[in-house]
Simulated scan of single mutants.
Amino acid sequence: MSALEERFSAALHNTARAWRLLIDRRLKGLGMSQAAWMTVTFVAKAKTPLSQSELAQKVGVEGATMVAMLDRLAAAGLIERVPSETDRRVKRVTLTPAGTELYAQVRVEANAVRRQLLAGIDPNALLAAAELLEQLQQAMDDAAP
């Protein structure tokens, strides 16, 4: 691995981790852990309700971990599990009205962090970085088994 590739991968990892931790600290007042707000965000942004296994994959956790997270979110009244119309073994996850309200609060906080951190970044540099990361994501998706 070249020094530049190593520098890039370290910067990517460290920046992503620091970004998540900063948002996590900002969302603590809402009683949300990183995994909880990521789960709520994926559910809110999905065009159609996701299954528990699809959510686990998106959040990057094992199925059992996602089930426990969804149990906590359901107990808090933030999500509902709805039986799939095509496969009765599958449960689809949707937000309750309280979950939708919480997601709106999460978005306000996350948007404030994003504006704060990106305020001094040149828009052209931001566009180039976004395109690079999207290409990298596509390469990873293509390489996945």
Rank of each mutant, 00 (worst) to 15 (best):
A143Q: 14
D141F: 04
A3C: 07
R7P: 00
R115M: 11
G63Q: 08
S84C: 09
E85W: 10
L73A: 02
T41G: 04
S51L: 03
A125E: 15
F8Q: 09
P83S: 05
Q105P: 03
M38L: 13
T94G: 02
L127V: 10
R114K: 13
D71E: 09
V43T: 13
A112G: 07
R107S: 12
R17A: 14
R88E: 15
A36I: 01
T48M: 10
T100C: 10
P123A: 03
Q137I: 14
A139H: 11
A129V: 07
T39C: 09
S9Y: 13
A110E: 13
M69C: 10
L132S: 13
L102H: 06
G63E: 02
T15C: 09
L133E: 09
R72C: 06
M38H: 09
V90K: 12
E62Q: 15
V61G: 02
D141Y: 06
A143C: 11
M32I: 02
L127M: 13
E101M: 13
L21P: 00
S51T: 02
V40C: 06
M32W: 01
T100Y: 08
A129I: 11
I23F: 08
V67E: 08
Q52Y: 05
D141G: 10
A10N: 09
L126Y: 02
R107C: 11
L118M: 10
A18D: 06
L73M: 02
S51H: 04
S84N: 11
S9W: 14
R114H: 10
T15N: 10
M38D: 08
V59Y: 03
A112S: 07
F42W: 07
V82M: 09
M1C: 07
V108K: 15
A143G: 13
L4K: 14
Q116A: 08
G60K: 06
Q57W: 06
P145W: 04
M140S: 07
A74T: 10
K45H: 12
A130T: 07
I79H: 03
M69Y: 12
M140C: 11
F42A: 04
A16C: 11
I79T: 05
S53W: 01
L30Q: 07
R115Y: 09
E109C: 11
G29D: 03
T94S: 12
F8H: 12
V113M: 10
M32Y: 00
R114F: 12
L118T: 09
M1T: 10
E62W: 08
A128L: 05
L55I: 00
T15Q: 11
L126S: 07
S53G: 04
V90Y: 04
S51N: 01
T48V: 11
L78H: 08
T94H: 08
A129T: 11
L118W: 02
Q116P: 00
A112D: 01
T96S: 06
P97H: 08
N14D: 15
A76M: 02
V108D: 04
A35E: 12
A46C: 03
V61A: 00
L118G: 04
N124W: 05
M1A: 11
T48Q: 15
E62D: 14
E85S: 13
